[in-house]
């Protein structure tokens, strides 16, 4: 029996090992593509997009801010779907997908909240306001910080995978509920500031589109790397299990 198959046999006893560990040509291509797209988007933000008339230079935050908020939300939807699939199928790969996506999404939503606050300062005259979109990003930040803390809090991998899947579902369901609550709340107590009605000139729209595309690629590249890391950890766990089976 080869080392490889014995190793995977031990691992299936715990739970199925998902995914490859080695970097493939696709990984390099994806990494390169996302870097190039990121640089192109960056160049467009500062070189191509026109200066906004009323807000001035600070409006340039908008492009990457929207892109990272979008990617954060997208990452959490992936965690939600992966959570459902994990509960239905109990396959380790869905757990890996869910946890990797939440972690990468958390980095992006954190960027969105921080830069949203940096936007609010000069534009709205205060570094924090309970503007609906800023608020929903902050709520998502809290939810997924809790998700990551939950993942870090138990040793029993199989059980924590189920807990995380359930919490990923609960957290994702909370997002639209919060969104409606925050929106109604804000319309009842009207704000002076409004982020609505910002008409986008075509070059601005183009820049936003490229930024969102670049960030989505970046998300995919980071997600793949994060999943590889988790597979490598599985192999290590399986190898350790082979040496000391009584650990399990």
């Amino acid at each position: 029996m080869s080392v490889e198959s014995r190793e995977s046999q031990v691992a299936t006893r715990v739970y199925e090992v998902g995914g490859k560990t080695k970097a493939s040509g696709w990984d390099w291509a994806l990494g390169l593509l996302s870097s190039v797209a990121f640089l192109v988007a960056l160049a467009m933000v500062f070189g191509y997009a026109p200066r906004e008339a009323t807000m001035g230079e600070i409006q340039r935050i908008f492009y990457f801010h929207v892109a990272s908020a979008w990617v954060g939300f997208f990452g959490f939807s992936v965690t939600f779907v992966a959570g459902i699939l994990y509960l239905v199928r109990s396959q380790r790969r869905w757990d890996i997908l869910g946890l990797s996506s939440a972690e990468v999404g958390l980095a992006f939503i954190t960027m969105a909240v921080v830069t949203g606050s940096l936007w609010a300062g000069p534009v709205w005259g205060t570094y924090w306001t309970w503007e609906p979109r800023l608020t929903i990003s902050a709520v998502q930040l809290l939810l997924y910080v809790a998700y990551v803390m939950l993942r870090a809090s138990t040793a029993n991998e199989e059980r924590i995978a189920r807990f995380a899947a359930v919490y990923g579902i609960v957290a994702f369901v909370t997002v639209p509920l919060s969104w409606f609550a925050i929106r109604w709340w804000r319309t009842i107590h009207p704000e002076i500031v409004s982020s609505e009605g910002m008409g986008l000139a075509p070059p601005m729209r183009m820049t936003l589109f490229v930024s969102v595309a670049a960030f989505t690629l970046l998300y995919a590249a980071l997600l793949r790397q994060r999943m590889r890391l988790e597979s490598a950890r599985d192999r290590l766990t399986a190898a350790q299990g082979r040496l000391a089976p009584e650990e399990w």
Binding site: L142, Y167, S178, F180
Partner: peptide, 15 residues
């Protein structure tokens, strides 16, 4: 762990 998990989920309810 409980308040960390529960309070963000309770945001819409509390509002």
């Amino acid at each position: 762990m409980l308040p960390i998990l529960a309070l963000p989920v309770l945001v819409p309810l509390l509002i």
